[in-house]
């Protein structure tokens, strides 16, 4: 695969959330506004980048049998760094994301990339893969967050845009809206794909 392909595959073709259905918990929980999506996406990309770099560097030295615990410790260390950093510099965001910051550690995308990609590929490709996947994850969160914030609150990035006569569809801010938005978004992508195949 070309290097640019390595970077771009995470955004659409192998989007971790919409195509591979991984990392669903933070996607649904945190996507109630665009800002939360960006914050979560950034923390996630940082952890994924760090873990992919380290795993790719030490791939020859790790015995096969204990590789999963080793990966988990590496990921957990980066999550702790991100957690403390956010608590120090973005306390409001840290509070809004709440328990989902420490829970990045069990995000199956990160362990999945370490196991399926970084442990088999060179450092450069692992970095590109992490950045691509991180962008894909962030974009998905922002996209769903935009819809939920717009429909459920009448706001874009926290500023009201719909005027006072707009009656927000409260359901979209509440938990069910997350399931419905993601379901329809996945269905929409399948529909686009089926159109492409027909051509």
């Amino acid at each position: 695969m070309t290097l640019s392909g390595e970077l771009l595959k995470g955004i659409y073709k192998e989007n971790p959330v919409l195509r591979l259905a991984l990392g669903l918990c933070p996607t649904l929980a945190v996507s109630n506004s665009v800002i939360n999506g960006i914050g979560m996406g950034t923390a996630f990309t940082f952890v994924l980048l760090g873990s992919n770099i380290i795993v790719s560097l030490i791939k020859k030295g790790v015995p096969d049998k204990i590789r999963i615990p080793v990966y988990i410790v590496i990921i957990a260390s980066f999550v702790t760094i991100a957690d403390l950093f956010m608590a120090g510099f973005a306390p409001k965001l840290h509070k809004a994301l709440g328990i989902f910051v420490p829970l990045i550690v069990v995000n199956c995308i990160i362990l999945g990339r370490a196991e399926a990609f970084a442990s088999k590929n060179s450092l450069g490709r692992s970095i590109l893969d992490a950045i691509g996947m991180g962008i894909g994850f962030t974009l998905t969160l922002v996209f769903i967050g935009f819809f939920r914030e717009f429909l459920g609150d009448g706001k874009v990035l926290g500023t009201p845009v719909m005027g006072s006569s707009f009656e927000p569809v409260l359901l979209f801010i509440l938990p069910p809206g997350a399931f419905l938005s993601l379901g329809f978004l996945m269905g929409f992508l399948n529909w686009i794909d089926s159109k492409k195949v027909r051509k």
Binding site: G177, F179, L180, G183, F184, S194
Partner: peptide, 20 residues
């Protein structure tokens, strides 16, 4: 089920209705 919604998408929509 409409074809594009088969599998996971309809599962999510069902979960959404249960969440309601």
């Amino acid at each position: 089920v409409p074809k594009p919604l088969k599998g996971l998408p309809i599962a999510f929509i069902t979960a959404g209705l249960m969440a309601i």
